[in-house]
Design a protein around this nucleic acid. Structure first.
Lengths: 247, 247
DNA sequence: TAGTGGTCTAGACCACGCC
DNA sequence: GCGTGGTCTAGACCACTAT
């Protein structure tokens, strides 16, 4: 399926060339003028295309020199990152899910801030265990805002892809996210559900997701069994999304 | 100091307005036409400015609707992320460093791949303990490529900012980076240097840094004491730098 | 339907690198 | 010095949101 936006078509073509090995790491890309001529587009459109690859960390750019290939590893769409099931499928693995607990209660101060609701507002708390090829790898403690809670409650307990179902049922789209990553020792509940010893290292990701207009949907404390998952970021002086903060 | 590039000046002005609270979370920004008029710039220049804020995750954008403020938290420069000392200083804390071991040896297969040198090529291995206000928080196992090794060896053992010294001494600039984040249990050496029990959770960041033209400088295995540091990423469907991979 | 952001063009000048 | 990417302009048309 050909991409209708010309800058996306050019970006796709360059990505394919990089992933196929036609431009290995260290190789230089054609100049903007050459790309514009070969695609019958203006220089502005070509620049829009290469700036996408720049943001993905695939290429580096310096004034005066041709662009250089830095990496040949594809990056993921936001949806693949957001959805456990879609991420698992893209890796050829089977994702499972099971709701262990689900209940309405009052938002704590920190949750109220993250979800932009008033302190004590009703929120839906869900404890969910996620499996990969039958093995438990992730324990999710998710807090949903009041307006989306009923749709979440209507889902089956063993729903494989919550993201997918919520999109199909309500048209909801997850657009923005913020992730905070650190390490914690497994508590009693973590150890029991993930089948490891108390005190074992866990990778913790606290995340908050919002709609296109910035309305918060959910905030979650996700704990991964060590060895099952790695988070990666590519960055540079020009585009730096990763931040290190004091705990 | 006024910014000479007009798009950066406009971006700075908008950032200041957001950090100062003139545009709180959820507020809408002026339209492109309004910003162009008020800054005496063309629409293209304004778009370049707001796209920077978009990449930083500060604002969200949808066709047809005005841009919305998503976050009022500043993001860091790549240098602040890269340099432990500069990061510590920006948080008002005192950074210390101490070289525990330093030796040349042959590159392993994985290191050779990351540093783009041949298997068995000479590399400089450095074990460094980093402290924050005197407390040990980070153990770095860094492998330097042969061409930069001598400059690293010339540094004093208690060098506070390696990044700063290498830049001043050799003109070296760290431009690109790749970070892989997961959790591991502390080994014997980790436990001894970071003063915690064997098996305690540690946040591990494996990173590789390169110059502007993509030449790898160093690759490192950094282990942080839990509770001392958190890594954060903001992302969206349009800009997604964070990737989750199978271990 | 009016306003907004997304896409695209065709040109210009400048700063920087490489040879 | 020449080629390259970085900046900027002024205009056009389209897709989408809001009212």
């Amino acid at each position: 399926m050909p991409e209708s936006r010309r800058h996306e078509a050019i970006a796709d073509e360059l990505r394919r060339a990089i992933f196929d090995g036609r431009y290995p790491v260290g190789a230089t890309l054609p100049s903007e003028t050459e790309l514009a001529a070969s695609h019958g587009a203006s220089r502005g459109t070509v620049r829009q295309a290469v700036s996408a690859l720049l943001a993905e960390g695939l290429i580096g750019s310096r004034q005066g020199a041709r662009r250089v290939v830095l990496s040949t590893t594809p990056s993921q769409s936001f949806t693949e990152l957001r959805s456990f099931a879609q991420w698992a499928r893209s890796g050829g693995r089977a994702a499972g899910g099971l709701v262990l607990a689900s209940a309405w209660s009052a938002a704590h101060a920190d949750e109220a801030g993250l979800l932009q609701v008033r302190h004590g507002a009703p929120v839906l708390r869900v404890l969910r265990l996620r499996t990969l090829d039958g093995e438990p790898v992730l324990l999710e403690r998710t807090v949903y805002a009041e307006w989306i809670g009923p749709a979440v409650e209507a889902l089956p307990d063993d729903c494989e892809s919550v993201t997918r179902r919520l999109h199909d049922d309500t048209g909801l789209v997850f657009v923005h996210g913020e992730h905070h990553i650190d390490a914690v020792a497994a508590g009693t509940a973590d150890a029991a559900h993930l089948r490891l010893r108390r005190g074992s290292p866990l990778l913790r990701v606290r995340r908050t997701t919002a709609t296109a207009d910035g309305r918060p949907i959910e905030t979650s404390d996700d704990r991964y069994r060590p060895g099952s998952v790695v988070f990666s970021v590519r960055n540079s002086t020009r585009t730096n999304p990763l931040v290190r903060t004091h705990a």
